[in-house]
Design a protein around this nucleic acid. Structure first.
Lengths: 166, 166
DNA sequence: CTAAAATAGTCGGGCGTCCAACTAATTGCC
DNA sequence: GGCAATTAGTTGGACGCCCGACTATTTTAG
């Protein structure tokens, strides 16, 4: 496997160093891939627990968020802001939830650009039942004790805030 | 917001407890959502750094993995196994990489079920250049010092292994 | 008071991930 | 040896996420 002589390093060696743990070096890429893998694990568990209710974790979050609101409804933009997802992702989620009869769109008469989303009776039922299901699963996160969970959370919080994520 | 009397708890209160930090309680869901957010942040940074090379981090990982192999090629099944993704994700990634001329499929004459993927010259060039790019970005992970990175990694490793992820 | 800028939401398209189902080929077992 | 079980890869479809572009409305500035 010949190395391009123009390059200031051996690409193979360099790439290998991303994942291999060179003594005394920090290995950000190793951590990055680990985070991605853990995320995949957790999301898969959550989605599996929610499958009987025919919703995903993404949609579950939307349901919970709406039910939180004082008035029982939320403008779509607020949802996107709180969940930190793109506006189009909110449109997509609300589309599906509405098609399932769990959520209803309601225009804002005060500001006609805005649209509220509110739970239907069925939406509230599904939210309650799926919350119960989520509480009872044996969670990957539970592999850590409460103290380590807290420690991990604090480390990730530091990471996020230094990345400008509030 | 009336609560369904059939339910053994107030769904709204219960759901709220997922995210709010009740004193002295472990909050696995809070950690779960934090992990998902961090993953999103990191992946977005990596993909942005790779955009000039017209590849994503998912495809970058495939390139690196193939270049690692002793023979310079890898059966698709091995790629999926190492990256811990579904076989269809590998097919998808290799399809795109092949369409870009970065990878070539080669049938295995010994076992005709299998297909090897190997880098083209262009694939090697892109791998080298994009690796260089990834090395030079200011990474969200760098918000933690080397010691905290290691600590986080160890915590996540414990989490993964207890979830049966090897 | 009007024109420019900002905000809210949607549509179309690209990408990655998974699942179910299917074909082809190889292994294993009786 | 021959048929069942396993393995490798693909196809089609569902979902979530983002981006760019676009419409409609409201704010803001001159």
């Amino acid at each position: 496997m010949p190395t391009d002589p123009k390059l200031p390093f051996d690409p193979i060696e360099r790439a290998a160093s991303i994942w291999s743990n060179r003594i005394g070096e920090s290995t950000p890429m190793k951590l990055a891939t680990s985070i991605m893998r853990v995320q995949q694990l957790i999301l898969s568990e959550l989605d599996a627990a929610l499958r009987p209710y025919e919703i995903t974790f993404a949609r579950y979050e939307v349901l919970v968020l709406i039910s939180f609101s004082a008035e029982g409804s939320l403008p779509l933009s607020k949802i996107g802001e709180r969940l930190m997802v793109h506006p189009t992702s909110v449109t997509n989620a609300i589309d599906r939830l509405e098609a399932q009869g769990l959520v209803k769109r309601r225009p804002d008469v005060a500001d006609r650009r805005r649209t509220f989303a509110e739970l239907t009776a069925k939406g509230k039922d599904v939210m309650a039942a799926s919350t119960k299901a989520l509480m009872s699963i044996d969670f990957a996160i539970d592999g850590l004790d409460a103290k380590d969970q807290e420690k991990t959370y604090e480390l990730l919080k530091a990471l996020r805030s230094s990345a400008g994520d509030f």
